[in-house]
Design a protein around this nucleic acid. Structure first.
Lengths: 211, 211
DNA sequence: CACAAACTATACCAGCGAGTATAGAAAAGT
DNA sequence: ACTTTTCTATACTCGCTGGTATAGTTTGTG
């Protein structure tokens, strides 16, 4: 075990480079098969330096996990800002929200990345935990749904459950491709169709009925 | 690599004991951290014998995977027989189906087991594949939904998608507990509530509307 | 310049665990 | 009874990889 104080301050650019390499290799090979030598090589840094920065392999992994979690937090906030603050067209808003999450920035979404990292952690290091800074994604979405409920747009007396249902119907399903497969096999068009169907079903169940 | 012919026939009881032990340890520790010595010890057999039966560690893992898959096939068929052949009360039928899958026999469901094993495989050995004997679960459920559609009980023009939605709303959500956590944390009562809510939402979206 | 911190380069070590070898005992045919 | 197959028991090999040691080089800074 390496305490925080043993770690080197260092330059934040190098920290980032190391995390980038580590994230790539952890995602590609899982925790165990990813080798520290490869991570160091890919980040253009000596293995020794990587250890000086992050202590040990598990420390590096949790650092990757934390960064992705933080980025997802931001993505979610932005997606909410852009879609769920001033809602008039429910369909368009929910659709835009799900789309934003699935394709944040240009690369693959933080949501997909985090999901995979958590799966890896669950298989390889049962001790690792993800601690959310504020609230986990479903919670903040639930808060929005509660608002929409009050405003009479949604019929969602249990907003948290509604959020779970929404995520399950759109994001989760897009990632797994439906069924018990392992890899994400959906291309862009299929993903979008999956999301559209999910939103449609969600709204058919949750849209407030005009009296 | 060990060819089939190198493997020993052996007694089927011993095969089962080895698989039992392997399944327990793979589920508990993942593929990498589970040790062949422990598996052999737990199954009351020498390590050498385990190797004679299954060739190598990966062969043992895929054997476990195949057995669970086969059992899930059976469970699903039975759950369909018991709930989705002669349907009058849609709510009760779908609820019974989901409940049966989640609590097949007395132990934990094959569905949960298989899900976890696939997650482990996905993290630790990207090469392993699950090959379904006939059709994967969602397909057979989709066939049932197609039937219910024809009989005017369900409004599901895309039965496969409906099956994905049903599974996502009930089984998947019960396993993950909602949100991006890793372990299953729901007790029996919570699971049942999750399933009930899932079925309710599913039917609100998919039940055929009386003209 | 001097001095320290950061970093490289490379060699090394130690443990772990998959898989094997060897020798023999116990079933099980025949 | 004899032979073959199955299985036990234990010791062993061997590659891999996380982590470290050592020595030297760069970089920054007063």
């Amino acid at each position: 075990m390496v305490t925080m104080k043993d770690l080197r301050e260092g330059s934040s650019v190098k920290r980032g480079l190391i995390l980038d390499a580590a994230q790539d290799l952890f995602l590609a090979d899982g925790f165990v098969r990813a080798k520290m030598d490869d991570i160091a090589a890919r980040s253009g840094v000596t293995k020794r330096t990587a250890y000086d920065y992050y202590g040990d392999k598990q420390g590096l992994f949790t650092a990757v996990l934390d960064r992705v979690r933080a980025r997802l937090d931001i993505s979610i906030h932005r997606a909410i800002e852009n879609n769920l603050v001033a809602v008039d067209d429910l369909d368009a808003s929910l659709l835009g929200f799900a789309r934003d999450i699935m394709t944040s920035a240009l690369g693959s979404s933080e949501y997909a990345t985090l999901t995979r990292l958590i799966a890896i952690a669950s298989a390889d290091l049962p001790t690792a935990q993800v601690h959310w800074s504020a609230a986990e994604p479903e919670e903040v979405l639930a808060a929005r749904f509660a608002d929409l409920h009050l405003r009479g747009l949604l019929q969602a007396p249990n907003p948290r459950r509604a959020a779970d249902h929404f995520v399950a119907l759109t994001l989760s399903l897009s990632l797994t491709g439906g069924g018990l497969r392992k890899g994400a096999i959906l291309d862009g068009a299929q993903t979008d169709e999956m999301i559209r169907d999910g939103v449609r079903v969600f709204l058919r169940a949750y849209r407030a009925q005009p009296e």
